[in-house]
Amino acid sequence: MAKQLITLTVNGARYETAVGPRTSLLSLLREGLELTGTKQACAEGECGACSVVLDGRLVMSCLIFAVEADGRQLTTIEGLSEGATLHPIQAAFVEHGAVQCGFCIPGMIMAASYLLDRNPNPTEEEIRHAIAGNLCRCTGYGKIIKAIAAAAGAG
């Protein structure tokens, strides 16, 4: 099927690219733009591993067609750290032992970043609800909650 030319801004950089009508935003990011920090796990919108921020909304990129991102702004995990300096949320995840296999972590951190951008001092309950759509099979979530709370306190 015919490809369509779209333009989008990802982490501040402008891209112009041709995408198929059924290409997901996740595929565009990972394969088209080679931004592989966003992970593909269930690819059905059930695990949150592919979470990115699209025009200020947290979305699962596997559920969105690439063409829908035309003319829009995206932030992915690659857009959080600045050079070699970790974003405070990333640093808190490292510091608090919140990372095991790491596969859920980029999506988890995007969800945390989305929360803290809107609510710099969340309660534990608010943290839990903010990451309720992000599955982690390794950690049992306790250290992730602590890391997000610590990042909020630090910011």
Binding site: Q90, G97, Q100
Partner: peptide, 19 residues
């Protein structure tokens, strides 16, 4: 101590097979 491979996992730089 902090895990020696954790920082890369938080930035998305760890290369899993799919990458």
């Amino acid at each position: 101590v902090t895990a020696i491979d954790a920082a890369e996992k938080t930035t998305g730089q760890t290369k899993y097979l799919q990458d």
